[in-house]
Measured scan of single mutants.
Amino acid sequence: MLEGKVKWSNSEKGFGFIEVEGQDDVFVHFSAIQGEGFKTLEEGQAVSFEIVEGNRGPQAANVTKEA
């Protein structure tokens, strides 16, 4: 699992980007967020995730919010 911080997200469009130190930003779709209820990410929020190869390149999977 990698750790990063949410660079920005748009809940209306359903995606955002995660900033990882020393690496390119990672695309995240809201379907990759683990948990119940409305899935949102806040700018600056710490997250853990895996990287998978998506249709348009690397993207985050199994995203969990850190406490």
Rank of each mutant, 00 (worst) to 15 (best):
V26P: 00
V28H: 02
G44Y: 03
K65P: 12
D24M: 10
Q45W: 10
M1Q: 11
K13S: 07
F30M: 05
A60W: 00
G16Q: 00
A46F: 14
V6K: 00
S9M: 15
A61E: 07
S48C: 14
E12G: 09
G54N: 06
Q34E: 09
E66F: 14
E21S: 11
K7W: 05
K65G: 08
E50V: 13
S48W: 15
F38C: 15
K5T: 13
G22A: 05
F17Y: 06
S31R: 03
V6E: 03
E36P: 12
S31P: 02
F27A: 02
P58K: 11
H29K: 04
E66M: 15
V52K: 08
D25Q: 04
T64L: 10
G14R: 13
N10S: 11
I18S: 01
H29M: 06
E3S: 15
E66P: 13
G54T: 13
A46D: 08
V6R: 00
I33E: 03
F38G: 10
G16K: 00
S48Y: 13
V47H: 01
E36A: 11
D24E: 12
A61K: 08
K5V: 14
I51V: 09
S48F: 13
S9H: 10
F15C: 05
Q34R: 11
E42S: 11
G57V: 01
D25Y: 05
F17P: 00
E66V: 15
P58D: 04
V28E: 02
A60L: 01
R56L: 09
Q59I: 10
R56K: 11
A60C: 04
L2V: 11
A32Q: 09
V63Q: 01
F15S: 01
P58R: 12
E3L: 14
V6I: 12
K65M: 13
K7S: 06
A67P: 14
H29I: 06
G4T: 00
D25F: 05
K39A: 10
W8L: 03
K65Y: 13
Q34K: 12
R56V: 06
E43K: 15
F17K: 02
V63Y: 00
A61P: 00
A32T: 08
G57C: 06
V52G: 03
S9V: 15
S48K: 15
G4M: 03
V28D: 02
F49N: 01
F27N: 01
Q59F: 09
G16F: 14
A60F: 01
E3I: 15
K39W: 10
V47S: 00
A46Y: 14
D24I: 11
K65V: 15
W8G: 01
F49S: 01
D24Q: 12
N55A: 14
T40V: 11
K5E: 05
S31W: 05
G37K: 09
W8T: 00
G35C: 10
Q59T: 07
Q23V: 08
S48T: 13
G14W: 09
F49D: 01
V20K: 02
F49L: 05
S31Y: 04
G37W: 08
K13G: 08
E3G: 09
R56W: 15
V26I: 11
N10D: 11
Q34W: 07
G57S: 05
S31T: 10
Q45E: 13
G14Q: 11
G57A: 04
A32N: 07
G44V: 02
V26E: 00
K7R: 08
K65H: 10
A32P: 03
S31K: 05
V6L: 07
N10V: 05
F30S: 03
G57Q: 02
G35M: 09
N10Q: 06
A61I: 13
K65Q: 09
T40S: 11
G37D: 10
A32S: 09
E53N: 12
K7C: 09
I33Q: 02
G54Y: 06
K7G: 04
E12H: 11
G4A: 01
V52S: 06
M1G: 07
F30T: 03
T64I: 14
F15Y: 14
E21V: 11
A61W: 10
E66L: 15
A46Q: 12
E12P: 06
V63R: 00
G4D: 03
N10A: 06
D25P: 07
I33L: 12
Q34F: 08
D24R: 13
N10E: 04
A46S: 12
V63P: 02
E42R: 13
K39T: 09
M1L: 13
D24W: 09
E3D: 09
E53F: 14
L41I: 07
E3F: 15
V26R: 01
G54S: 10
K39H: 10
A60P: 01
K7E: 04
I51Q: 02
G35K: 04
E42T: 13
A32W: 06
T40N: 10
G44A: 03
G22T: 04
G16H: 02
E21P: 13
T40M: 10
M1R: 15
M1D: 05
G35L: 05
N55I: 15
P58I: 08
G37N: 07
R56C: 14
S48E: 06
E42N: 10
A67Y: 11
Q23F: 13
E21R: 10
G54D: 06
D25C: 08
I51F: 03
G14K: 11
M1W: 12
R56P: 05
E19P: 02
E19I: 07
G54E: 03
Q45H: 06
E36G: 11
K5L: 10
A61Y: 10
G4H: 01
A46M: 14
S48G: 05
V6H: 03
F17S: 01
H29W: 08
S9L: 15
E42H: 13
A32M: 08
S11T: 13
E66N: 14
F49I: 02
Q59A: 07
S9P: 03
V52W: 07
N55R: 13
G22C: 09
M1K: 15
R56S: 08
G54K: 05
A60H: 02
S9A: 15
V6C: 07
T40H: 10
I18N: 00
V6M: 05
F38P: 15
A46H: 14
E66Y: 14
E66R: 15
F30C: 06
E42V: 12
E42L: 12
G44N: 05
L2R: 10
K13T: 04
V20L: 10
E66I: 15
H29A: 07
L2P: 01
D25A: 06
G35R: 00
V26M: 03
W8N: 02
F49V: 01
K39R: 11
E66C: 15
V26S: 00
H29F: 06
G4I: 04
E3R: 15
V26W: 02
A67R: 09
G22H: 04
Q34H: 09
F15L: 05
Q59N: 05
E12F: 11
V52M: 08
D25L: 07
K39E: 09
E19D: 05
A60R: 00
E53T: 12
F49K: 00
G16M: 04
K7L: 03
G14N: 10
S11F: 12
Q59R: 09
G54L: 06
K7Q: 04
F15E: 01
R56Y: 13
G22L: 05
E66T: 15
D24C: 14
S48I: 13
K39N: 10
